[in-house]
C-alpha cells in the first residue's frame, strides 16, 4: 500500500507493523467484516419474508397448509441450527442441479442417485464450471443466505404467528363490523398492529442472527473467522511478514466486533421500541401518552 512497504524484511518496529496491517491479506480480513454486514442486511429481510409466509400458512384455514406452517416454525426448536447449516445448502444445490438436469438432459436414462453418488450431466452443473469465479462466489453466498433465511425464517414464523394472535380480538371484530373482508382486515388492521407485539421477539432474533454469522465459516465462505485463522496462524519465512501464532489476538478482535454489534443493535432497538409503542394500546404506549409525548 505504501511505497516504504516494498521490502518488508528490512522493516522494523512500528513501520513493520503499519505495513503488516495494510498488506493485501489484512485488507481482505477487513473486507470480510463487510461480508458479515452484507449477509445480515440481505438475510434479515429474506428471513422476515420466510417468517411472514410461515405465519400466514400456519393461520391458514386449509389444513395441510396450516400443518406445514406450524411444522416449519416448530422445526428449529428440536434440531440444532448448525445441522441445518450443514444440510440445507447441499440439499438446495442438489435439488437445483436435479431440476436443471431434468430440463437440460432429457435424453439421460441413468439414475441420478447411484448408491451414495449423485450424478447429473455437465450442462446441468450450476454454475457451469466455465463460469468466472465471481459467479461461484455469489452462488455460494446465495446458498448461505438461503440456509440462514430458512432457519431464521422458522424462528420468525413463530414470533410473527404469536404476534398476530396477540392483536386484540376486538380490533378484528370492529373491522368486521365495518364490513371489511377477511383479507382487508388482515392487511389493514392486523398486520400494522402486529409489529409492536412482534418487535421484542424479532429484535431478539436479530441478536441471534448476528451471533450466528460466524457459522458462515462452516459453509465455506471466506468470512471473518476464515481470515482470522488464516492471517493469525504462524507464518514462515516464505511470507513477507513472518510472525508467530497470533490467532488469539485476531479472535479478540472478532470478540470485540461482535460485542460492539450486539451493543449497538441493543441501543437502536431500544429507540425503535419507543417509537413503535407510540399511540399503541399497550402498557408502554399508555405510559408515553401519560408522559405527554
Amino acid at each position: 500500500m505504501f511505497d516504504s512497504c516494498a521490502d518488508p524484511k528490512t522493516l522494523e518496529g512500528l513501520s513493520w507493523f503499519l505495513c503488516f496491517l495494510t498488506s493485501g491479506k489484512q485488507l481482505l480480513f477487513y473486507r470480510s467484516f463487510f461480508i458479515v454486514l452484507i449477509l445480515l442486511a440481505v438475510t434479515a429481510p429474506v428471513a422476515l419474508a420466510f417468517g411472514f409466509g410461515g405465519a400466514m400458512a400456519a393461520r391458514s384455514r386449509i389444513a395441510p397448509l396450516s400443518w406445514f406452517g406450524k411444522g416449519y416454525s416448530a422445526m428449529t426448536r428440536g434440531v440444532p441450527d448448525i445441522v441445518f447449516f450443514l444440510f440445507v445448502p447441499i440439499a438446495m444445490d442438489q435439488a437445483l442441479e436435479m431440476i436443471r438436469h431434468k430440463i437440460k438432459c432429457p435424453e439421460w436414462t441413468d439414475p441420478i442417485f447411484r448408491g451414495s453418488d449423485f450424478v447429473v450431466c455437465q450442462q446441468a452443473k450450476f454454475p457451469l464450471s466455465t463460469s468466472p469465479q465471481i459467479y461461484h462466489d455469489l452462488y455460494a453466498f446465495t446458498l448461505a443466505v438461503i440456509a440462514f433465511a430458512v432457519v431464521f425464517g422458522a424462528f420468525a414464523a413463530s414470533v410473527i404467528y404469536g404476534a398476530m394472535q396477540a392483536v386484540p380480538r376486538a380490533q378484528m371484530e370492529t373491522a368486521e363490523a365495518y364490513g371489511m373482508t377477511d383479507r382487508q382486515a388482515f392487511w389493514r388492521i392486523m398486520v400494522p398492529q402486529m409489529w409492536t407485539y412482534a418487535l421484542p421477539g424479532l429484535s431478539n432474533l436479530w441478536m441471534i442472527l448476528i451471533k450466528a454469522t460466524p457459522l458462515l465459516f462452516i459453509l465455506g465462505i471466506q468470512d471473518v473467522v476464515y481470515w482470522a485463522r488464516e492471517n493469525g496462524g504462524y507464518k514462515t519465512e516464505h511470507f513477507d511478514y513472518p510472525h508467530p501464532d497470533w490467532r488469539v489476538y485476531y479472535f479478540l478482535v472478532l470478540l470485540v466486533f461482535y460485542l460492539l454489534m450486539t451493543k449497538g443493535s441493543e441501543v437502536i432497538i431500544g429507540r425503535l421500541t419507543r417509537n413503535l409503542s407510540h399511540g399503541q394500546a399497550t402498557l408502554a404506549g399508555e405510559r408515553m401518552r401519560r408522559a405527554g409525548r
Partner: peptide
C-alpha cells in the same frame, strides 16, 4: 452477562482454546 450473551459461542470456543494453549 454482556460478554457471554453478546458474542457468538463459536468465537468464545475459538478464543478460549487459543488462550488455554498459551
Amino acid at each position: 452477562i454482556f460478554i457471554f450473551r453478546g458474542s457468538p459461542l463459536f468465537i468464545q470456543f475459538f478464543l478460549a482454546y487459543e488462550s488455554f494453549v498459551l
